[in-house]
């Protein structure tokens, strides 16, 4: 895998250790992710991949007993520094969760939520952003006449695309996705996958997935985690066809996990 220059590094973890109370869940992880790529984190459940993903927007901050050593660098800045405003950070680093979690509000308000909490009151701007975001997430045509309907009336796949639109409305530069398709049917899953492929042009995407075929289909690079270690990180086709580590090989071929 090519070495990235400092400028090319969008996200970076340096010597990262993460603990929950006494338990160490990530051990000395080092990784650098290039802008406008899709990176997949794979590995058996409990390997630390979700925890790792959540360090990039500091979602672990509220977890009791969370402690980390090492640094997370985004666009050249250490995001765990004291002066960093975590709310600002999360606007820049959007997140989509495993289970679709639309707010119990209308479709429109869901997408407009991020703007409203920033104190933006310009109606026209909000409407434009909502439309743009829904179009980007390929949901606009399905909901444009029902914007006032409750978001909970949508199907699971639509809800997840709404959550993506909700995140995009904030115009982040990075999108973290925590198994975004695991709760969806195959058709919805393929829609989400197509979407990820398109979004790559404008965003840097990191996706945690259980599904190795999915990782193979949509990602440029893949990182394999096992019991808190980053075992191997390389171009996706290398990982799937010619892994250097035996543990990766075993996992890819389905011998465990």
């Amino acid at each position: 895998m090519e070495k990235l220059s400092i400028k090319e590094k969008k996200l970076e973890a340096i010597n990262l250790d993460v603990y929950y109370g006494q338990k160490q869940v990530l051990k000395n992880v080092n990784i650098a992710i290039k802008a406008n790529t899709v990176t997949a984190f794979i590995g058996p459940s409990g390997c630390g991949k979700s925890t790792f993903l959540r360090t990039f927007n500091r979602m672990n901050d509220y977890v009791e007993g969370f402690r980390k050593e090492g640094d997370i660098i985004i666009d050249g800045k250490d995001i765990y520094q004291k002066m960093v405003r975590v709310e600002e950070l999360r606007k820049k680093v959007g997140m989509v969760f495993q289970k679709p979690n639309p707010f119990p509000k209308t479709i429109f308000e869901n997408v407009a939520y991020g703007l409203k909490i920033q104190g933006i009151k310009n109606k026209k701007l909000i409407e434009e952003t909502v439309e743009k975001s829904l179009k980007q997430s390929a949901l606009w045509d399905e909901v444009k006449d029902d914007l006032k309907k409750s978001a909970l009336s949508l199907s699971g796949g639509q809800q997840q695309r709404l959550c993506i639109a909700r995140a995009l409305a904030l115009e982040p530069s990075i999108l973290l996705m925590d198994e975004p398709a695991s709760a969806l049917d195959p058709i919805s899953t393929s829609k989400i996958e197509d979407l990820i492929w398109e979004l790559k042009e404008k965003y840097t995407i990191v996706i945690v997935t259980h599904n190795m075929q999915q990782a193979g289909r949509i990602s440029d690079n893949t990182a394999f985690f096992y019991m808190g270690d980053l075992v191997e990180y390389d171009e996706t086709k290398t990982i799937f066809t010619n892994p250097k580590q035996e543990r990766t090989q075993n996992y890819i071929t389905g011998r465990f996990g």
Partner: peptide
């Protein structure tokens, strides 16, 4: 999940 959704958007 609703809490996470809101926090994840910078609330």
């Amino acid at each position: 999940s609703l809490r996470e959704g809101a926090y994840g958007m910078g609330s």
